[in-house]
Every structure is written in C-alpha cells, then in structure tokens.
Design a protein around this nucleic acid. Structure first.
Lengths: 159, 159
DNA sequence: TAATTATTTGTAACTGGTTACGTAAATATT
DNA sequence: AATATTTACGTAACCAGTTACAAATAATTA
C-alpha cells in the first residue's frame, strides 16, 4: 500500500498521472524493443491520417482534443523522419494538408500488428474491471462540463 | 463522441493521459486563482513532510514511487521559494534531511483549506462511479506485477 | 474598397516526467 | 588496511504537454 493510495481521494489525480506516465514509458520501451522507430504519441496521428487521408493541424488538434502547438511538435518530428508529407491548400494558403508518406503506408501493416498487441494488453489490464471504460467516460464528461478549477472554486469553504 | 472514445481500447492510454493532463492544468489554474504561490505537484511533498517531519530525497522518491531526479527538481523549486529547508545528516553526509520551513508551516492551514476543496471536487467527479477507485487500484497492481511492455511482447502475433 | 476581425500555423518559455551518467560518501569484501 | 561495491544525490538530455505571443492569410464589416 503506497502513500498515494493511503491518502484516498487526495491522491487520485496523482495516481492517474502516475499510471499515465507508467503506461507511456512502458509503451515507449515496447516500441524500442520491437525496433519501431516511432514515438507512442504518433499512434493516433497515424490512425487519424489513415482514416481521413488528409488533415490540417487544426483538424487534428480538434479530433484529439489537444492544443495545436502539441500537434505541431509531433507532426514536425514525423515530418523530419519522413512519415508525413505536407502540401499547401490551394484555396487557403494558411492551411497545410498533412498526409502519410509512402514510407508510412509501407510500415502500416507491421505497425498494426504491434498496435493489435497493445489492444490485447489493454484488454488484459481491464478484463476484471468491467466498469472502467464507462466510468472513465463519465469522468471525462464531468470535467468537460465543468472543469476541476471551476468545481473546486465552488467547494472552498472560507474559514 | 470524440476520436479517442471511438477507437475503443486503442484509445485508453491516451484518454488516461489526456484526463491526467486536464486535471493537472486545471488544478494549476485553481492554485493560481486562489493566489497560492505553489505548483500542484508540491502537494504530496507537503503532505509527506507534514507526516514524517524529516525525509531524504530517496525516501520521498520511494514513497511517491517516482524517480529521484523528479523529486530533486520539485524540491529545488520549493527550496528556492523557501518552502523547504535542508540539513546534512550527521551520521551520513550523503543524505540531505528535508524539512518544511516556518513559511510552509504558517501556510499549511490555508493550503489545507484548498486541498479539502480539491477532495470535495474529486468526490464529486466519481460519486456516480462507485468502482473507479477499486478498479484503478487493480489496474495499478497489474502494471506493477508485469508492465505494459512485457505484457505486449507476449501478445504480439508474428505474421 | 478599405479596415477590422477571425483563423491557421508557428515559436518561445514554462511545467512535469523519464533514463543515463557522474561524484562523493558509506559499506562490504578481501 | 586497501580495494571494490553500493547508495545518495545531482546534472544533462530527452519526451510530452500547456499558455502566450506573433505573423500571414482569409473573411467580415463598415
């Protein structure tokens, strides 16, 4: 029983962060061991561009609900390693249309093999937690409706 | 329904990260709005040093199950703002004994007021998720027993 | 049409973690 | 007692997000 568990509700946010970090770093180990020359957070970009063929930074950041500078950073790394190609939109020169490169398309079958293994692992980890996905969704919904900051302001009791 | 939810198990790790980030940044907003001049991740250090009076970097990193360089970074910031004082252990000059400063002790009542509000918020967020804490604990236990990397290696199906 | 506003993308500076490596002190071994 | 190993702490370089600001283009409004 570790300290974060001992302190109950006070430790929940940090436990979620700790778990998130553990999963991220362990996934990175896996990618490295498997000889994949990609970062874990490229996964979703691959999936999105596989599905939509061509997207802009703004569209990706909306799909993933992540800030656009975060997406820019990921995309730049992927471009540097030739996983993504860009062209400027003909009708709106501000927009950069992003597409998977040939290199990416060639690698996708192998990548999917590993992503499938990840899915199996995830299933394994929550197979005895039948409510986890649903309750996580509820959690996401609640913080989307009113965030932690706003809720806590209302919960402060002035001394 | 966003993309991460659409893709089911494949999106779980990223959803946990996204939630973790959202909670972290929103908590930082709260601290800022409340005029507290501290970072969210100092919380656990305060609680630990309140409980144990004096701890070393190594002990803190073990209690929190976090790398020691991460703890060093946090502690250095807290020292820079005079929340923590250090003295060298008389019996082992490698060890730095960390203690809360007078400034910290004076601020603790006010800090606890806000931390209590955070606890209320957390309760609010999971009040309709009666299994969340328990299933999270199970999740933590499973990845501690065998991490995501090791599990996924076993789940790969060679083509 | 000219001026204002909004959108898209990029950059800088910040927080928050990790692993890998180095140094000094303590402990164990020979 | 001298040498080797372990422990404690610190630093550097990396990944992954955020907010705030800036510049260029597009869209709207006066």
């Amino acid at each position: 029983m570790d300290f974060l568990q001992q302190i109950g509700y006070a430790g929940l946010n940090s436990r979620i962060k700790r778990l998130s970090d553990e999963l991220l770093y362990s996934t990175r180990d896996y990618y490295k061991n498997a000889g994949l020359n990609i970062e874990p957070n490229w996964h979703l970009i691959f999936l999105l561009l596989e599905k939509h063929n061509s997207l802009t930074i703004t569209e990706i950041s909306q799909e993933l609900r992540m800030s656009h500078p975060a997406c820019v950073k990921i995309i730049n790394k992927m471009k540097k390693k030739n996983y993504i190609e860009t062209k400027t939109d003909k009708n709106d020169s501000r927009k950069q249309l992003l597409e998977l490169s040939e290199k990416s398309k060639n690698k996708l079958p192998n990548l999917h093999k590993h992503w499938d293994a990840c899915i199996e692992t995830t299933k394994e980890l929550i197979e005895n937690s039948p409510n986890f996905m649903q309750e996580l969704t509820e959690f996401e919904k609640l913080v989307a409706d009113k965030n932690y900051n706003e809720r806590t302001i209302e919960n402060v009791k002035e001394l």
